[in-house]
């Protein structure tokens, strides 16, 4: 069972990398970063070294960001590219890379945290089109002049606000059990 899980991880990794390569324009830099990052993550998983995997993740992230150019998120195709080409594969990569020290089996995906993080990412991506939509209804003249920087600004403001809101929840620091007297 454990070997299957490891194979599954490698398979997921391969799918994520192929997905990135398919949706991005294959430049020398992107191929190099994808290859280097993938090797780092593989080595990290093989040797249970989280730092190496994390480094690989960051390298792949940079490569992926550099290989795709998205100037607006008001088109459905770019939104799909953002989701399928960047967000989901990178999220998957992060999950795989950061669980490198878990040994044979990565921790199972928890449903609520997945919903929270996917909701967060969706909210951030869709914030720009929603704001543009609202602007087009309220002030159509302004909506026509929305630039990339404006969309970045909207997304970053949404990301910050949502991030703070979702990470606001603090756990109980203590668990009380019954006291006893010994000996």
């Amino acid at each position: 069972m454990t070997s299957v899980q490891r194979q599954m991880r490698f398979l997921l990794l391969a799918i994520a990398v192929v997905d990135l390569l398919v949706f991005s324009r294959l430049t020398g830099f992107s191929i190099l970063t994808a290859a280097f990052g993938s090797v780092m993550i593989l080595l990290g998983i093989a040797y249970n070294d989280r730092q190496a995997s994390a480094l690989g993740l960051l390298v792949i992230s940079v490569g992926a960001a550099a290989s795709i150019t998205i100037t607006t998120l008001t088109d459905v195709s770019t939104v799909l590219t953002a989701f399928l080409g960047l967000l989901l594969p990178l999220f998957l990569l992060a999950y795989i890379a950061l669980s490198a020290e878990e040994g044979e089996a990565p921790p199972p995906l928890a449903r609520r945290p997945v919903l929270v993080s996917v909701g967060y990412m969706t909210g951030c991506i869709l914030s720009a089109p929603i704001v543009v939509l609202l602007l087009s209804v309220l002030t159509p003249g302004v909506a026509l002049r929305v630039e990339t920087m404006t969309e970045i600004g909207i997304i970053l403001v949404t990301a910050t606000a949502l991030g703070i809101a979702l990470s606001y929840r603090e756990p109980r620091r203590s668990v009380a059990l019954v006291s006893e007297e010994l000996p």
Binding site: A64, A82, L86, F91, A94, S117, I155
Partner: peptide
């Protein structure tokens, strides 16, 4: 925007 989206993917993780 792709840099921003990658950034959001990492924050999502």
């Amino acid at each position: 925007l792709s840099w921003t989206i990658v950034s959001i993917a990492l924050i999502g993780a």
